[in-house]
Design a protein around this nucleic acid. Structure first.
Lengths: 223, 223
DNA sequence: TATTAATGATAGTAATACTATTATTAATGG
DNA sequence: CCATTAATAATAGTATTACTATCATTAATA
């Protein structure tokens, strides 16, 4: 027996819920492939429509623009990551162990779950590393923030901040440390592959290195 | 008597050196204003040309595209930042003091220098915080990296890494820590203004807070 | 004075980021 | 089973973006 986990992404992000139709699922699935292959800047709805043999207009019925589609994908990831954190930490009482598991989750690819409806986790991970900051480094960030489109990221940040605070209640910057862990995990992995002079990692062991670097940093900061 | 500092930016970044003409200087100066006002995505060469009453074609004679122009601006910043680090640390032998000054420089606006030819440092700072990761989070990063367009960032990273290594020679990840300081400085300041739930800072004291947060982190990590 | 370099003026193209309209098909409800 | 509705296809069209090209004009220089 299996159980399935699904996430309700804020429905202001889409015009029509892509989960409710086959073509909607194809849009998200192929968007992940295409954003990974082309990079977000070169990715267009026209290319996506060609990929899944539908019309551009159809894609526009699901998402206002490609930025919203990126947000949808990232929200899915952030929700899933928060779920994984909570799930994997269940029954683990040792506070140090809990933090170690958080670092592991943040620095390693998502596990391939067996759910029927499943995104390519390897590509999703790459997209998060390379494109996630483009979701919030935009001129209208304050506008779209009102629509709660960053809630899953904030929730994840907050969940990790609580685990930090549980380990060391006197540490004063748990939220900043939480986002530093998340963002640094992305940057260090990206640098190790693309700009190796900016890190001490080697490409071969980027996930492992990033985990070791962050764990070392985390426990020294919280000591 | 004054002395002036100028930086030779890698000449593969531009087609024609904007420093060599009045209109070239106007292009860079107004680009900083416009990128700040519109955000990099909405910024176009057409709008820039309108701003300085020249033609789009003229702008294209200086820079291949807007990404190169952003790189030019960022390279200027990175060079200037490295200069400031080296300059301000002259004659300071206390290794802890040296690190503190680095954090100060990374978290506070650039000083308004009195040079004749001078960019708006406040806006430049904002651009670095908001747009700098868009310079390297691109699909063709490896291609353009071969043209040495990230050398100034790497040099800055390396300079700071040396200061870290001087403080604690046994610390194993000085480059990763160096880029973590730089990137985290940007993110925490950005979050404090735009997504305050992701940080413990308040907007009012974002520079001060980010400095305190990073200094605390740095010295605990290197202890 | 002739030459060259820089810019302006103008035009044009392919791609992007959409919006709109109408026709067709599929699903559902009575 | 028919009528209705919803979803999509097919098609068209617009404004903007990201360029490239050409030629005339002006300014600087040799």
């Amino acid at each position: 027996m299996e159980f399935q986990v699904s996430f309700k992404v804020n429905d202001k992000i889409f015009l029509k819920d892509p989960e409710t139709s086959e073509i909607g699922k194809q849009i998200v699935k192929n968007a992940i492939d295409l954003i990974h292959n082309l990079g977000f800047e070169q990715f267009t709805f026209k290319k996506l429509a060609q990929e899944i043999n539908c019309t551009e207009a159809t894609v526009y019925r699901y998402f206002e623009n490609k930025h919203r589609l990126l947000l949808y994908i990232l929200n899915w990831y952030w929700c899933y990551m928060e779920f994984l954190v909570i799930f994997k930490l269940q029954n683990i009482t040792d506070k140090q162990e809990r933090l170690k598991l958080v670092v592991d989750l943040l620095t390693h690819e998502l596990p391939e779950s067996s759910g029927q409806f499943d995104y390519n986790k390897k590509l999703l991970n790459q997209i998060v590393i390379t494109e996630s900051s483009k979701a919030f480094l935009v001129k209208d960030v304050s506008e779209i923030n009102k629509e709660q489109v960053f809630k899953p990221y904030k929730d994840l940040c907050s969940t990790i901040a609580e685990i930090i605070a549980a380990y060391n209640p006197s540490y004063e910057y748990p939220h900043s440390l939480s986002t530093t862990l998340i963002e640094t995990s992305h940057h260090q992995q990206y640098f190790s592959v693309n700009l190796p002079k900016l890190t001490d990692a080697k490409e071969e062991n980027r996930e492992l290195f990033t985990g070791i670097f962050l764990e070392d940093l985390l426990f020294k900061v919280l000591k």
